[in-house]
Structure formats: structure tokens, C-alpha cells
């Protein structure tokens, strides 16, 4: 029941994921097995929260479809889903490959030097560009935010980076938006939202909320 704190190393949240510090459980917590177990379950839920939620919605919606619209509509829906899956998979694999290849080439340290507090609009522009080109989901982007912050990017640049990644990420654009909603819409929407991260970053430098990057 009591765990040696040193054996806590494999604890999934502690291992170097975010510079190794953020999620390291305090020793008092680490000694208490039930609490640790609870934290593990929480961690698993947190990692798979959207999967669980979407699964529940899918089951509910599936049962409702079966009940209200009949078996034929149920099968039609599944067939549509399969169609969409076959349609997305080629883009998905290409997008993942591009993301992984870019990760091998980009150097966050060199980029962060261009994004300091004195970098002005140019720094915000670089942050927006880097965010737009940053591939992958939040599990890739947020650790990168920490790296950029540690390497000297200021808060305006970090806000611009996060927004550019989530709003205009090229991977999302090419894998999902253009194939599913049409190239015209995807391009027009991206043109509209492209400058927005810079505006938000400019405001963020002036918002009177004190924030220090996590050490």
C-alpha cells in the first residue's frame, strides 16, 4: 500500500512531459497509493476525456436514430461515416507525416529568440507564422508553448502562437477543412482569421493581468 517515492518515476504525468516539473506529484501524495491510483485514473480520464464524451454522445445518438428513424436510417448513417472515413484517411496520413517531418526540422529555441517582448509586430508575425505551421494536436502544441516561453518568447507572442495554431493550423486546414467544407470556404475563412492572432497578441501585451511563465 505504501509506495517508495522513487518508484513513482513511471507515474505517467511526472516523466519529462512538460520539463518534468509541472506534474510531479508532491512526495506526500506519492506515498499514498490510493491517492496515486486516483490520480492515475484522473490522468487516464483527462487524456481520453473527449474520447469518452464523444463515445457516449455517439451511442446515445445511435440509439436515438434507431428508435426514431429506424434501422435503415441507422445503417445509412453508418455507411456515410465509413465513406467520410475513407475520404479523410489519405489526408490524415499525409498530414501526420508532414507534422512528424516538420518536428524533426524546426528548432524552437532559434524561433523564440525572434519573439521577445521587444520584438514588436514582427515578433507577433513570426509567432503567428510558426503557430500556423505548427502541426499536431494540443499534446504537441502546449509543450511547445512552454519551450518557446522558456527560450524567451513573450506573452503576446505566446497568445499569438496558440491562436494561430488553433485557428489557422495548416494541418487542420488541409486535412479537414478543405476536403470537407470546400477549398473556397477554407481559403476565405483563413484569410479572414489570419491576422487575428497578431491582433490578440498585441492586446495581450497590454492586458493588465500579471503572468509569469511556469518555471
Amino acid at each position: 500500500m505504501w509506495l517508495d517515492p522513487h518508484r513513482v518515476a513511471p507515474f505517467p504525468l511526472s516523466a519529462g512531459e512538460f520539463g518534468g516539473r509541472l506534474y510531479l506529484p508532491p512526495p506526500s501524495l506519492a506515498r499514498c497509493a490510493p491517492v496515486l491510483q486516483f490520480a492515475r485514473v484522473l490522468h487516464a480520464l483527462r487524456r481520453h476525456a473527449s474520447l469518452v464524451v464523444i463515445f457516449l454522445i455517439a451511442v446515445t445518438a445511435g440509439l436515438a436514430t434507431l428508435q426514431l428513424r429506424g434501422a435503415e436510417a441507422f445503417m445509412t448513417a453508418l455507411w456515410h461515416a465509413w465513406d467520410l472515413f475513407l475520404f479523410i484517411v489519405p489526408s490524415l496520413v499525409a498530414g501526420l507525416l508532414l507534422a512528424a517531418a516538420l518536428r524533426q526540422l524546426l528548432s524552437p529555441d532559434a524561433l523564440a529568440r525572434l519573439m521577445g517582448a521587444e520584438s514588436g509586430i514582427f515578433g507577433l508575425f513570426i509567432a503567428t507564422l510558426v503557430g500556423t505551421l505548427s502541426p499536431g494536436g494540443p499534446m504537441a502544441a502546449f509543450p511547445l508553448v512552454l519551450v518557446l516561453a522558456g527560450a524567451g518568447a513573450d506573452r503576446g507572442a505566446l497568445v499569438a502562437f496558440i491562436l494561430a495554431w488553433s485557428l489557422n493550423g495548416f494541418q487542420k486546414l488541409l486535412v479537414y477543412e478543405a476536403p470537407l467544407l470546400g477549398l473556397d470556404f477554407a481559403l476565405l475563412r483563413t484569410l479572414i482569421t489570419f491576422p487575428m492572432p497578431m491582433i490578440a497578441g498585441w492586446i495581450a501585451r497590454r492586458v493588465p493581468i500579471a503572468w509569469e511563465p511556469p518555471k
Partner: peptide
């Protein structure tokens, strides 16, 4: 595997 059927069911509903 869960998201696409969800969207398809919702669009039926």
C-alpha cells in the same frame, strides 16, 4: 471510430 458515426447519427437526427 466514434466521432464519425456520432456526426452521422446527429445529422440523421
Amino acid at each position: 471510430c466514434v466521432a464519425l458515426p456520432m456526426a452521422a447519427f446527429l445529422s440523421e437526427l
